[in-house]
């Protein structure tokens, strides 16, 4: 019964996401596309942090690695649909490398090691302008139109609405794959690693391998999202791949509920879409929400965390526990 209800809710939400563009202007459609891609990247971080217990503050760097990798590959003449798996693979491989510090250090050390990595990636993208266009943006090396939108089976996805459906399809695909992964023995091993690495090792669970994999898969998902982010925004510079965005991605995961399957989807919606809905609803004298939204969001997260550290999706459990 509960499963049936869940499936019904899922189908209803998916249907709403499919018909939504009919009632939205271009900017709304763009935001929904952006949400799809950030939800994928946040899902990756949720895997690394929420399920495998490995702190990472470098998710935006992997988004950037995916975006720049696919753009530079396309520029070099590689077809987009070959570039996507390659960009994902690059992010996966770099994520694997980033996993090595995690074998030595934990928690806050790891948070700062990954944070440092994010700064290094950001600096490299910004400073090596011969390759990336630096802070002037990818347009410097790809021409003023930037990254072209791909076509699929000869059908061009240049229009925003078509590209949105592509992003949505990729979100569905990623969600399904992550669900399968978490149900597999690997998902169980990740949770064992998170809950008690010492015990896990005494049960033949290779915590080295699973730690590296948790980083690599999480990074790969962000790289995959980045590969679609590039043609979505077409012109981009290093700024969306800095520390603030990694922090945003982390807060998306935490707010939705770290280690909860739908946490990233909800968290990404709150961070990306809520300010714009608020703009429509709130009186104008408050000023545009993008100016004060992050401030209010930071405070809201702080309050939420002190009250219910498990995130929004943990609130029902908490209320139930309180009622008992």
């Amino acid at each position: 019964m509960r499963t049936a209800l869940r499936i019904a809710a899922l189908v209803a939400i998916l249907a709403a996401l499919i018909v939504a563009p009919q009632y939205l202007r271009n900017y709304g459609i763009y935001l929904l596309s952006l949400w799809s891609l950030f939800a994928i990247a946040a899902m990756g971080l949720n895997l690394t942090l929420g399920y495998a217990g490995q702190m990472s503050l470098a998710q935006a760097a992997f988004l950037g690695i995916g975006a720049y990798a696919v753009a530079l590959l396309v520029k070099a003449g590689v077809p987009f649909w070959v570039g996507v798996p390659l960009a994902t693979l690059v992010a996966f491989a770099v994520g694997l490398l980033l996993g090595f510090p995690a074998l030595r250090v934990q928690h806050h050390y790891l948070a700062f090691a990954t944070l440092g990595f994010n700064v290094l990636v950001y600096l490299a993208i910004r400073n090596e302008d011969w390759l990336t266009g630096g802070s002037m943006g990818i347009g410097q090396v790809m021409g003023f139109a930037g990254m072209p939108r791909p076509s699929i089976f000869g059908y061009s996805l240049r229009r925003g609405i078509d590209f949105y459906y592509l992003c949505l399809a990729m979100l569905c695909l990623s969600t399904l794959l992550v669900w399968l992964l978490l149900r597999s023995p690997w998902g169980r091993a990740f949770a064992a690693l998170r809950d008690n690495p010492v015990r896990a090792e005494s049960l033949a669970i290779d915590i080295r391998a699973y730690t590296l994999l948790a980083f690599a898969i999480g990074a790969g998902l962000a790289g995959f999202a980045g590969a679609f982010y590039a043609p979505l925004v077409q012109l981009f510079d290093p700024s969306p791949f800095g520390l603030l965005e990694s922090l945003s991605l982390l807060l998306m995961v935490v707010v939705g509920g770290s280690g909860r399957f739908w946490g990233p989807h909800i968290g990404a919606a709150l961070v990306l879409l809520l300010p714009h809905w608020l703009q429509a609803l709130l009186p104008a004298w408050l000023g545009p929400p993008d100016q004060w939204y992050l401030f209010v969001f930071g405070i809201a997260v702080l309050v939420l965390l002190t009250w219910c550290p498990g995130g929004l999706l943990a609130i029902p459990d908490r209320l139930r526990a309180r009622a008992q």
Partner: peptide, 24 residues
């Protein structure tokens, strides 16, 4: 209020605080 939830949730709360202070 956060410390009983563990080191990591507290660290994340501090990150949220840093975001709020910066943006404020």
């Amino acid at each position: 209020p956060m410390i009983r939830h563990g080191v990591l949730p507290l660290a994340i709360a501090a990150m949220a605080l840093s975001l709020a202070l910066q943006q404020g």
